[in-house]
Amino acid sequence: MAKIDADTKIDRALTEFAERLGADDPVAVVGGRTKWEVGGAPADGTRMVAAPTGIVSYLPSEMVAVVRAGTTITELQSALADAGQRSALPYWGNGSTVGGALAVGQNSLDVLGRGRLRASLLQVRYVSADGHIITGGGPTVKNVTGFDLPRLMVGSLGTLGSLAEVILRTNPIPDTMRWLRGQGIDPFAAFDALFRPSAVLWDGKTTWIKIEGHRVDVDAEQAALVRRVGPVEEVDGPPELPAHRWSLAPRELRHLDQPITDRPKTSNPTYPVGRYVASIGVGTVWASEPQPARSVSDAIRTVAARMKAEFDPTGRLNPGRDPYTTAGM
């Protein structure tokens, strides 16, 4: 792909997107629908609009890419890979979009290696409920200029603004990426044994570990792992993940393999997860059972409601969708 100098001016694609969204009726932005049920589906009668597509610019030496929200993750990652880089975006399959992933806000499976998605968003352009194109953040990798609108947009499910274009931080793809698998080894000891694992996954019996870096680093880390926790074998990739996504504190994963009645009383979860794959050191659990509703304090709900009222006074953005529910996860 040609390397284009970053042009941060608002282009026609964005103004046309704003025109399509309008300023009056209930509206939602539709991406690849790969996580469409997260937070609940939009209310009946909501008009669907697709976000603009295309990579506006990509400068590998700056480690930033300017990309329109409707661009597929596949297209972006392919362009980045051509220059030996990648982003923190998760991969959800064909059709999933950059804007959709940011609106949902879920991290990649190998978040320990790629970094959190929310930290990778440098600048955001979104269309406000009243039809203005709003810019928040900035194009540089470091920036504390004003209030942090990009952070607010990640995980807000499009209920505060409709993502149009973003600037993402990119990172080099490591020289070597290796998945290892060990039967019956202690996943927590494996996590402790490694300096910077990219992922440690555990299904209660088997542990999968992703190590990245220079080949000599990966070899040395693998050797240390074997010494400290037991034998592992190289495999092609991670296991298949159950459908539902839970969010727990890393400590809460320690007792997942025990029957609920045997777990310490202070331990969570106290409800069945079913078949699972847990991300050690992170707290994400993919499980066959959905995560029950999580409590949200009244004080947080008050601020969240005020935020919604400030950004979308008439409630026209993604009506029916609630960032504070576990529905669809």
Partner: peptide, 23 residues
């Protein structure tokens, strides 16, 4: 009011009020 912003879990629900409080 006392707010608990963010959380120790992997992906706290809702708006990233923690993230906008920082800075």
């Amino acid at each position: 009011d006392v707010l608990a912003l963010g959380g120790l879990d992997a992906e706290p629900l809702g708006f990233d009020l923690r993230g906008i409080f920082v800075g």
